[in-house]
């Protein structure tokens, strides 16, 4: 069943990717500005060289031909050279991706760590103080503009209290040979607790900023799911059987109530991956989002194309994972 579903999803992926490529391409074609002009920033350059540069970037060909070439190459995994880095786009993206993934995972972790217990407690103590607190907290969570909250956090913790670093990913003095390229994990694997805490101190604020809205949403989902489970027959039955309340709650009820939370979390991770350029900008986090925004400004077409395709693929895959999790954890549902 799962294999079939996977095949089905992959088949769905293709038109989406094609559509995404077409849209990006049309948008780029309609956008004023010229990467060669940006690169030369108007310097006096002989026309032959400008011509040569346009040729090197493939800009001297008609748009449709360019698109065909792009599609053909993309099928073989070749996304061309970044106009400005003059290195393969895939390399440039791969360099920035670990930072984005690490930040996203950290945010996901924080969001889950906050929302699951909070959601459960809110459900158990429905309409009591903790429930109200959770409700107010999640309202704040979805209402905080991330860019502003990030600035305020920097102001408090990095500038005034000076307990956390202002920006960056890890102190340069930490030389940890890469394994996963996630700095926190690598420093643990290499047995460098000092570097681990250093990397952690760098990631905590951006991850927190990114996690807040997600934590807010997940808390609500967790609470609703828990309420539903608590009302269900088997929990009532378990109580009746005399199993301790604690045990019922944390062993039986939570297991089932986690399904929607995990599913939503998987889905939200997609928008988290694509939605963190603001946080990356504020915290100087060397991730992909910042790179893509910069690339739009300088008309670095190959990079934009490849990055957007990457986002689309992850989005579709994460939704697939969400569905899969939902079926796996919840035997009543079939794909």
């Amino acid at each position: 069943m799962n294999v079939l579903a996977l095949v089905g999803r992959t088949a769905q992926l293709l038109p989406v990717l094609l559509g995404v490529s077409v849209i990006v391409f049309v948008m780029m074609a309609l956008t004023p500005g010229d990467p060669v002009e940006v690169m030369l920033s108007g310097q006096q350059v002989p026309p032959e060289q400008v011509q040569a540069m346009r040729h090197d970037m493939g800009l001297d060909r008609p748009p449709l031909e360019r698109f065909a070439v792009f599609l053909g190459n993309a099928l073989t995994g070749d996304f061309g050279l970044s106009f400005f880095h003059r290195r393969p786009v895939t390399d440039v993206i791969a360099e920035r991706l670990p930072a984005t993934i690490e930040l996203t995972l950290a945010a996901l972790l924080i969001a889950l760590a906050v929302s699951i217990p909070l959601g459960v407690l809110a459900a158990v103590h429905k309409n009591r103080f903790i429930d109200r607190l959770a409700a107010i907290g999640s309202l704040f969570g979805i209402s905080l503009p991330g860019f502003w909250f990030g600035i305020i956090m920097i102001m408090i913790f990095a500038v005034h209290m000076q307990v956390l670093p202002v920006s960056g990913r890890m102190d340069y003095a930490c030389e940890v040979a890469p394994i996963t390229r996630l700095m926190t994990i690598d420093s643990l694997l290499r047995g460098r607790p000092d570097c681990f805490s250093n990397a952690l101190s760098h990631i905590i604020l951006p991850a927190l900023t990114l996690a807040l809205p997600m934590a807010a949403v997940l808390t609500r989902v967790q609470r609703a799911a828990m309420l539903e489970v608590l009302r269900s027959d088997y929990i009532v039955f378990a109580h009746a059987k005399g199993i301790s309340r604690r045990r019922v709650l944390w062993r039986h009820a939570l297991k089932n109530a986690l399904v929607p939370t995990v599913t939503v979390a998987a889905m939200e991770t997609g928008s988290l991956l694509g939605g963190n350029m603001v946080v990356e900008t504020v915290f100087g986090w060397p991730g992909l989002g910042r790179l893509v925004v910069e690339s739009i400004f300088v008309r670095n077409y190959p990079l934009i194309q490849a990055a957007v395709l990457f986002y689309a693929v992850t989005y579709v895959l994460l939704n697939f994972v969400a569905d899969l999790l939902y079926t796996m954890l919840n035997p009543r549902v079939r794909l």
């Binding site: 400005f84 880095h85 003059r86 290195r87 913790f157 209290m161 000076q162 307990v163 956390l164 670093p165 102190d171 340069y172 003095a173 930490c174 000092d194 570097c195 805490s197 250093n198 952690l200 101190s201 760098h202 905590i204 060397p286």
Partner: peptide, 29 residues
């Protein structure tokens, strides 16, 4: 978080004489 913050305040051991430049952009290549 407090513990973390304290840990961060401790400098990671650096030995050599070194000069650090805070620079606006990264090299492209």
């Amino acid at each position: 978080i407090t513990v973390l913050a304290l840990a961060a305040a401790l400098p990671v051991s650096g030995t050599a004489t070194e000069l650090r430049v805070g620079f606006t952009t990264d090299a492209l290549t």
